[in-house]
Design a protein around this nucleic acid. Structure first.
Lengths: 71, 71
DNA sequence: ATAAAAGTTGTTTTAAATAACAATCGCAGT
DNA sequence: ACTGCGATTGTTATTTAAAACAACTTTTAT
């Protein structure tokens, strides 16, 4: 999986919202019920996440999933 | 993969936009460079699509990817 | 009614997402 | 220096998305 623009952007967006809510990657990963390692890879655009995973993240962050696609 | 609400909603949204643009599933699948069978499964919420796939679809439909998450 | 187009479903293969756990790096702050 | 926390990276196993092709059903139009 090559790092591509959109994945990097979404990762950055997640990170930004997470920081706003004063959560660590571990915190967010726990809320989503997966490993902090997975969250790290997502935020750095290393994985081509599925909708399901994004949905879990947006729920944990209390934002609508479409928020993850804005810059 | 269980059919879940969000996947069904996204599928319906894709279908709706596709229809507006007078495209068949085959047309859209060709634009996205994958099988019409895949498009059928996506529109019916049978697969937990990745961002990449959604991105290809939104490009083919000439809409921003966040459009696919609105109802 | 029949032919063509559109959509659905089945199967197999391959690539990659996700899970789980560990080890390491970077940088506070003490 | 050391300790702890946040983040990153590596590995292995399992699951599943995606690709490719075929067969079938449904719809549409003639």
């Amino acid at each position: 999986m090559p790092q591509t623009k959109i994945l990097i952007e979404i990762g950055a967006r997640i990170k930004s919202i997470r920081k706003d809510k004063k959560l660590s990657q571990s915190d967010l990963a726990n809320l989503c019920d997966f490993e902090k390692a997975t969250m790290s890879r997502i935020e750095s655009g290393q994985t081509n996440v599925t909708i399901f995973t994004l949905f879990k993240i947006s729920n944990a962050l209390n934002v609508h999933i479409s928020e993850l696609f804005k810059n």
